[in-house]
């Protein structure tokens, strides 16, 4: 009897403790913001060097109300999504080919590795020169930066399909398409999604790098613009929006992962 009650209250306690622990990061953020606010006011650092959170949030409200933030966000988001889709598509097609054909791999891998040593900031201006300051060059830069991690994960993913399962499928006289959809894709899925998760955050970086080089729209452009106007609070607003965008994309893939890979974690 006593044990029961004690057990139950303990369980209640641990549940509450769990909830508290999950709130800790938010609490830490709140405290950090308070310290930031206090420190900036007390030390009288100029606004254009380090604005306090209150000023940033007020700037955020203004940017939301005049619609400029939404407009620039949508521009960048569409570049990011298109870049991610394009980069991931080409990388997974090529990756599948490389995983399946050692000849293709031997021919292409030196170039792929070499291409990886070119910093993306160095090629970004070229792409803007070739494809203009519009959205296309941003999509391409974003696709380029997404390409490599997705490619590597695709190759690794399809290489790790157990050979015994291939034997099984062959013994059942499975067609090529059946082997692909019923064996290779699900077996490689954990690694494929890992690549997509990395790609999703890199895609944001790619689009912003492109916008930095030359653009008249987008969050990268907004940062450049605000910087020139010494509107540091707006720089912060744009950066925070970018972080939120990258985190949400990551979250979408992570959710997809939880759904598709329930068999692993349960």
């Amino acid at each position: 009897m006593w044990v029961l009650i004690w057990n139950r209250s303990e369980r209640k306690l641990t549940k509450r403790a769990d909830r508290l622990i999950s709130l800790l990061p938010l609490l830490a953020l709140g405290i950090a913001l308070l310290i930031w606010e206090g420190a900036v006011r007390w030390s009288e650092i100029p606004l254009f060097i380090l604005p306090p959170p209150s000023v940033i949030s007020e700037r955020l409200t203004r940017a939301l109300i005049d619609g400029s933030l939404l407009r620039h966000t949508l521009v960048t988001l569409s570049e990011v999504l298109a870049g991610l889709a394009l980069g991931a598509l080409i990388a997974s097609l090529l990756g599948y080919g490389l995983a399946k054909s050692s000849t293709l791999e031997r021919v292409l891998s030196p170039y792929i590795v070499a291409s990886q040593s070119i910093p993306i900031v160095a090629v970004a201006p070229l792409l803007v020169i070739w494809f203009g300051p519009g959205q296309i060059s941003k999509v391409l830069i974003s696709a380029l930066i997404v390409f490599f991690p997705v490619l590597i994960n695709t190759v690794v993913g399809f290489r790790t399909v157990p050979s015994e399962l291939y034997d099984l499928m062959r013994s059942l006289r499975a067609a090529k398409a059946q082997i692909f959809w019923k064996l290779e894709v699900p077996a490689a899925m954990p690694v494929l999604l890992g690549g997509l998760k990395i790609g999703a955050t890199l895609a944001v970086i790619g689009a912003v790098v492109g916008e930095f080089v030359g653009a008249d729209r987008g969050l990268g452009f907004l940062i450049n613009l605000a910087d020139g106007l010494y509107d540091t609070p707006l720089v912060f607003v744009a950066v925070i929006t970018l972080v939120a965008m990258a985190l949400s994309l990551y979250g979408v893939v992570a959710t997809l992962e939880r759904r598709l890979l329930a068999w692993r974690t349960g």
Partner: peptide, 30 residues
């Protein structure tokens, strides 16, 4: 490979993403 021949391998060789019954259904599904 022949349709009228069944194979059992040294390891169970099940597809980890399929439930027991889905694994058994595989040959019929194909």
């Amino acid at each position: 490979p022949r349709r009228r021949i069944g194979f059992v391998f040294q390891t169970a060789n099940l597809m980890p993403w399929r439930t027991a019954i889905e694994n058994v259904e595989l040959p019929l599904e194909l």
